[in-house]
């Protein structure tokens, strides 16, 4: 089996400005944050981001990387509104496709299944079609003649997801409460990259967890990144929960340019190792 191990920066080197990139996880849960941080450090621009959004979207907006956003929501869960997202929307800094949450799943599933669209009831009657004029409806060819929303495929140039474990060839495993839609993001993408807490020998994957926890197949994966604490500050259960204190600091810092500059200087000015070291320092300080 091909060894697909890479670093975050090697993943980002395979991406290009203007690409459509899907990001796995949900809100502030199991987000591939080390890959997002690497994207923020890069010179990539004008990205279209598809996400059940959380601080992944917030950081990319703050770094000026996003031209267009496709989402059902952008939230930090324990803090309902993502502050950078809110600021970007209220200043008109980003164009958006705001969809029903189920539409996003359907768009990813259509792309993963090589369909141009999938029919769905959700969205009809709401203002979602009005604010997304590119959306069209389709009429059932059967006797019922029902009209559905034709949710277009969300074809991704790349997908980034974070899992608990993977082997070196890209078989990915989740051990937490929910797979979210990470397998669909990978299936919908030309190139999928999996970061994980630990890369383990293949045999170890099913030694400690049921076979159903194997979520992503290596045939859908181009690169694997070992990224301990790679989802920080979002949840990565059972390895660790959300760093709520850090998330609060993040959200408070986003309130104005000056405090955000200080936050970025402290945590985001170096590489991933520097980030993790700064977070460890902060935790030590808080314990004193």
């Amino acid at each position: 089996m091909t060894d697909k191990r890479m670093t975050e920066d090697e993943v980002v080197a395979e991406l290009r400005s203007g690409m459509t990139i899907g990001i796995g996880g949900w809100g502030s849960r199991r987000k591939p944050m080390s890959l997002v941080r690497a994207l923020c450090r890069s010179d990539l621009q004008d990205l279209t981001i598809v996400s059940y959004g959380g601080p992944d979207v917030g950081l990319l907006l703050a770094a000026g990387k996003v031209e267009h956003l496709v989402y059902g929501f952008v939230s930090l869960d324990s803090i309902p509104l993502e502050p950078h997202f809110r600021a970007a929307r209220e200043s008109g800094a980003v164009t958006v496709s705001e969809w029903d949450e189920g539409m996003l799943q359907w768009g990813l599933y259509a792309a993963a299944s090589r369909l141009s669209f999938l029919p769905l009831r959700s969205g009809l009657g709401s203002d979602v079609p009005a604010v997304n004029p590119d959306l069209k409806t389709v009429t059932s060819p059967y006797a019922d003649g029902t009209e559905y929303l034709a949710v277009p495929a969300l074809n991704l140039d790349a997908a980034l997801v974070h899992l608990n474990r993977a082997d070196a060839s890209g078989n990915g495993q989740y051990l937490g409460p929910d797979a979210y839609f990470d397998d669909l993001f990978c299936g919908a993408a030309e190139r999928a990259y999996v970061s994980c807490e630990r890369i383990v020998p293949t045999a170890e994957l099913t030694a400690a967890a049921p076979v159903q926890s194997l979520l992503v197949r290596r045939s859908d994966v181009r690169g694997v990144v070992e990224a301990p604490k790679g989802a920080h500050f979002t949840t990565c259960e059972p390895d660790y929960g959300r760093d709520e204190a850090f998330q609060r600091e993040y959200a408070q810092a986003a309130a104005d340019d000056e405090s955000w500059a200080a936050f970025a200087d402290r945590y985001l000015s170096g590489d991933e190792a520097a980030y993790q070291a700064a977070v460890a320092d902060r935790t030590l300080e808080a314990a004193r």
Partner: peptide
Amino acid sequence: LGVRGAPGNTVN
């Protein structure tokens, strides 16, 4: 919040 699941919830 964004429309979240509201469009789908209400019609289903």
